[in-house]
Write a protein that binds this DNA or RNA. Structure first.
Lengths: 198, 198
DNA sequence: TCAGATAAGAAACGCAACGTATCTAAGGGG
DNA sequence: CCCCTTAGATACGTTGCGTTTCTTATCTGA
């Protein structure tokens, strides 16, 4: 720290910057994140950042990609309702308020620089492993006889994430357990049953 | 026009500013809207605007409130599916891409100035006449025998708007007829049927 | 009708943050 | 061991916010 003048390069430096950006996001959020602060935190300077990313939005998306995992472990509790509750809870924990502030902020930037919009959408749709997870949960419920066999349109497999993101965005806080339960009991379970009926 | 040096005041001036802000929104969007441009378009100056509203976000929300109507006419086509299609289409037409850019932009500002968040949420939840519309549509379907009697949680009555807003935000464009049809056929109708079944 | 209060309009400012240009020097590759 | 890439520092130009100051038109009320 004091005397370490070793100059980082390449990947090592890049990771340091992305980590710094992530920390900065967590502490002050997207709206207040400045490139200078990220540079300072990473112990480097603005030009180094601008040589790698075209702007603030790109940097933030990269940091996000660098940090946020996209895998789900498929819950297996032995019952459809509790599987869904675990799934919704997992998504909600990960898609916390900060992430939604990032989405909102990047989104508003996306209109100024259309190429950012593509990046963002790509990142958001990248969560499509969700579809497989939902299908596995439903398949097991069908095997147990909890549900009639059912075809799942992609709009339905995407719905958990859409509901949670929407709630996050509108309330500014991650949905609590009651809200998650209402998503499952008022919307998702009835929907699955309705899809199963002719 | 050329020589009219008459100085406007009070309501007349306020309306001129809000109209100018609205036009500016339509032409350049939220991200590129500047208070100076609004002032110029309204033929006035920045201080006049800042004497009335605390900032850009407040101004935009006021302009929006000044312009956007919130009433729905309940569709009555004689069948549940077509009623829903009309409803979804109406909402989608009104909640066009611009409006969503505004939501996104204001949202990102809302994190910097928390009092803005309240304004925004208020404005978005103000769309709750939707709940009544949905209930009327469903009641009529029940009367016709298309559906078993059903209790509608508020999460369900809000769902059309949530689905459409989400689509708008993710795609950047208003959902086309196919997408709207898939919302009705893949999600909303099955959901209603599922709610009706025990 | 006229005087004073009120608020519009204009110009300029300070500030913050973006994104860039210029320079020095570190350290890896030939 | 020299050179060439590029990290790191500094300073700059720009944009747009929100504010300040000042002048002057218009409204109000005695």
């Amino acid at each position: 720290m004091a005397g370490t003048k070793s100059r980082r390069r390449g990947e090592q430096l890049e990771h340091a910057i992305l980590d710094a950006a992530w920390e900065e996001l967590r502490e002050v959020g997207y709206a207040r994140l400045t490139v200078e602060a990220v540079a300072a935190r990473a112990g480097t300077s603005k030009p180094v950042i601008y040589r790698r990313w075209a702007g603030r939005a790109e940097l933030v998306i990269a940091a996000w990609q660098h940090r946020a995992p996209t895998e789900h472990r498929t819950p297996d509790t032995g019952a459809l309702r509790s599987d869904l509750l675990v799934l919704f809870t997992t998504i909600a924990r990960r898609a916390d308020a900060m992430m939604n502030e990032v989405v909102a902020g990047v989104m508003s930037e996306a209109f100024r620089h259309p190429e950012v919009a593509a990046l963002l959408r790509e990142r958001l749709v990248a969560d499509s492993p969700l579809a497989g997870t939902v299908r596995r949960i439903v398949d097991r419920a069908v095997e147990r006889g909890e549900l009639l066999p059912v075809r799942l349109p992609s709009r339905v497999t995407r719905l958990p994430l859409d509901l949670i993101r929407n709630e996050n965005v509108m309330c500014g806080t991650p949905p609590d357990d009651d809200v998650l339960a209402s998503m499952v009991d008022d919307v998702y379970l009835p929907l699955l049953r309705g899809l199963a009926a002719p």
